[in-house]
Design a protein around this nucleic acid. Structure first.
Lengths: 256, 256
DNA sequence: CGGCATTTTGACAATCGTCAATCAGTGTGG
DNA sequence: CCACACTGATTGACGATTGTCAAAATGCCG
């Protein structure tokens, strides 16, 4: 069973068979979307929550002069807009980077799950908070890391995230995005992005060809990027699997 | 009653008298902390949640070579570490920028509030999500705005946030931080930060003296910074105050 | 009046951006 | 099978923004 969504949530807390069943049952209706399509636009009201099943999407904003800023990558297993369900209005847009398979979870489904399946609810909120942690790390990259470190760091992060959902083997993974996308993610120009990638290739750290990344020397790449994966909060599940809730702060997690 | 915490939460949803009472009752024991003190350090486990009552604090990380990156400002009314209560471990540190008054809410208090006061619980999660939105906007600034725009944007944001808790009058507010702090926030060097501030002063947009910001022409400053406050989600409260929960996605917000 | 943190300056260098071609890969229609 | 068109990658020349270093000026506090 290679459902990336379930696979991801399992890393954030043990799920029961019933949990997995309900998750499977609500993630059957897949919609195919081409590349470069908006899934949700800034200002849109909420009409359900989108789940990426296959492909890459991103959160982004476009500034008045046309510059684009990509603030997050959404990979298989990621929910795009759980927060909108709470805040009520999008303050940014979400678009596919590659062709994607997307599942829309209706408002009712989300409520059903979060109210009646506390373990899933916890895992969902955990994932929201991890997204926030990723955002913080990206901010550090933008503020205090060189262009090369930024790109290297991002490639390390994607490796770990994709491994977590079984989409990376042998330190290689599909990265179906253009250098221009990478540039808008790292705050660089496309030209400079290109040169940095060449530099990384010259040092035999990575190869990024055919929309696929191959990391040749992960240890050296991590070192160069100062990559420490703790912010992804993917440590092994806690040993004392006290079923659901009420361990620690379990009780204070609200249904969405 | 000038409790910034209550004032802030009220902007995110109507609170009943009982809500306000419980909030007041748990925010009495204030601890005074000097400037430049760590409130929580990376890796720390959770031992309650910290609330800034007075003064400025920040989230930050320090990179191996010593560079510091400030990822958030915590102003009066802000909770520092609600997420740690869920994630269990800090992936960054929090320190005071100025002398502060801090309140520690114990694990028990948080659980009591979030389980039994759904309106407060909702407002708390709302504030977590707004923090995330701020992070996204900062990322945009770092990636695609010039040094001048970054600083101008930050000053606009702080005006709005401080106005929301009654700490700004006449487009002026206390900003008890140094230019070095500002530099670590915007990803610039202190030298360049200084020059940009002079530039803004020369254009008669702001004065930043004596740890106090005076915005001389807010409209012009906003225009220059491309500041649009929608990401702060401070719009007027929804008119149909259907008491608690179950309006929209109210039901899916978990107690923390 | 020191002593220390912070701000300000100047000279210079490095990183990174812009502009404008060129090259390469892919897909299409003839 | 090839010309053509299109998107994306790559290059070179040049310029702008921003960083570094080191010193001087200013402000604050005991």
């Amino acid at each position: 069973m290679s459902n990336p969504f379930i696979r991801k949530l399992e890393r954030f807390g043990l799920l029961s068979e019933a949990d997995k069943e309900i998750l499977l049952s609500v993630t059957t209706k897949v919609r195919r979307v081409g590349a470069q399509q908006d899934l949700i636009s800034e200002g849109d009201p909420t009409d359900g929550v989108h789940l990426i099943q296959k492909g890459f999407a991103c959160r982004y904003k476009v500034l008045p002069e046309g510059a684009r800023s990509i603030m997050a990558y959404l990979v298989p297993g990621d929910l795009c807009d759980l927060h909108v369900a709470v805040l009520g209005r999008m303050d940014h847009s979400i678009a596919t980077l590659s062709a994607c398979e997307v599942i829309t979870l209706s408002r009712e489904v989300i409520e059903e799950i979060t109210v009646n399946y506390p373990a899933i609810n916890r895992a969902l909120w955990w994932s929201v908070l991890v997204d926030e942690a990723i955002l913080r790390e990206w901010l550090v990259s933008m503020g205090r890391r060189s262009a090369e470190q930024r790109i290297a760091h991002l490639l390390c992060e994607l490796l770990v995230r994709l491994q977590a959902v079984g989409l990376a083997v042998d330190n290689s993974y599909d990265l179906p995005i253009t250098q221009a996308d990478l540039a808008d993610t790292t705050g660089l120009s496309t030209v400079h992005t290109n040169r940095v990638l060449q530099e990384l290739r010259r040092h035999e750290l990575i190869v990024f060809k055919n929309r696929s990344v191959n990391i040749l020397d992960i240890e050296r790449l991590k070192a160069r990027a100062q990559f420490a994966p703790n912010y992804l909060h993917l440590e092994p599940k806690r040993p004392n699997g006290r079923s659901q809730s009420r361990d620690g702060y379990g009780g204070m997690i609200p249904p969405i």
